[in-house]
Design a protein around this nucleic acid. Structure first.
Length: 256
DNA sequence: ATGGTGGCGCGGCCA
């Protein structure tokens, strides 16, 4: 069994107690983090190591920053997305327990048509090329993180309100489909769902209390690995804690 | 209503 999770923590400095508390009960084999907002010298590796997790991190001050915590050793680490001449720390890739894991913090995109939106689409094109190449060498691959895209209307609390807005626009969804077309499955959609679930709720407008959310934190698996996926879930509990991240953890289990 | 809340860091940007 391999249990993997992802969580955009929106500052690991603020959220460290939340992450430690969550790890104690969820006990995944790997947790990937986004928006750590920490320089590498400030990463709290000792706190995780005392719980039995090894740490990889690629950080920067104030913005972005990604990390991977794993029980097993990590090999063949990649921290830069090929094709992007980019100081933004948004990707971290390593092999753990024979599984190629790609942790991403996809650019938000600000608003449709903005410069940041163009950067987001460019970043996603380069990501698809990177994943396509990685799949040639690694049949067992997981691509997970904060995608800043709700794949379909069923991932949105109010699709009409969000129609062609950032996180939901047709070009973003096409870029997401291009990622799937490299040979990946959205593990959440491998299982029947009775009602909509979300992984992110805006801090404003009491969005969490009113469940006005989007499902933008995703775990994608290559087809050989998707065939071994036994569950894919969203844990809303940490979003209820005091001073929470605006995202909550999502996780998947594989019978490997 | 281009609002609102939160993190960083101390004015304004980013989400």
């Amino acid at each position: 069994m391999f249990k993997i999770a992802t969580w955009n923590v929106n500052s690991l400095r603020v959220r460290l107690p939340h992450v430690l508390k969550w790890l104690e009960t969820a006990r995944p084999d790997m947790l990937t983090l986004q928006e750590t907002k920490l320089q590498d010298g400030d990463f709290p590796a000792a706190d995780f190591e005392s719980m039995g997790y090894q740490c990889l991190f690629s950080g920067q001050k104030t913005y972005n920053g990604v990390a991977m915590l794993s029980r097993g050793a990590a090999d063949d680490v990649v921290t830069a997305l090929p094709g992007m001449d980019d100081p933004q720390k948004r990707l971290l890739c390593a092999t753990v327990d024979g599984i190629r894991v790609v942790n991403v913090y996809v650019p938000n995109g600000a608003s449709v048509g903005s410069d940041k939106y163009a950067y987001k689409l460019q970043w996603l094109r380069n990501l698809a090329a990177f994943i396509q190449a990685q799949l040639q060498q690694h049949p067992r691959l997981v691509l997970l993180g904060d995608f800043n895209i709700a794949p379909g209307d069923e991932d949105v609390h109010d699709p009409e309100q969000w129609r062609e807005k950032i996180l939901c626009s047709t070009p973003e969804r096409a870029a997401f489909q291009a990622l799937l077309d490299t040979g990946l499955e959205d593990t959440y959609r491998l299982f029947p769902r009775e009602e909509r679930e979300f992984s992110w709720w805006d801090y404003r407008m009491a969005a969490f209390r009113r469940n006005l959310g989007l499902r933008i934190d995703l775990i994608l698996a290559s087809r050989p690995l998707a065939a071994l996926c036994s569950s894919s879930t969203i844990d809303k509990e940490p979003r209820r804690w005091e001073r929470p991240s605006d995202h909550t953890p999502v996780m998947a289990e594989f019978d490997v």
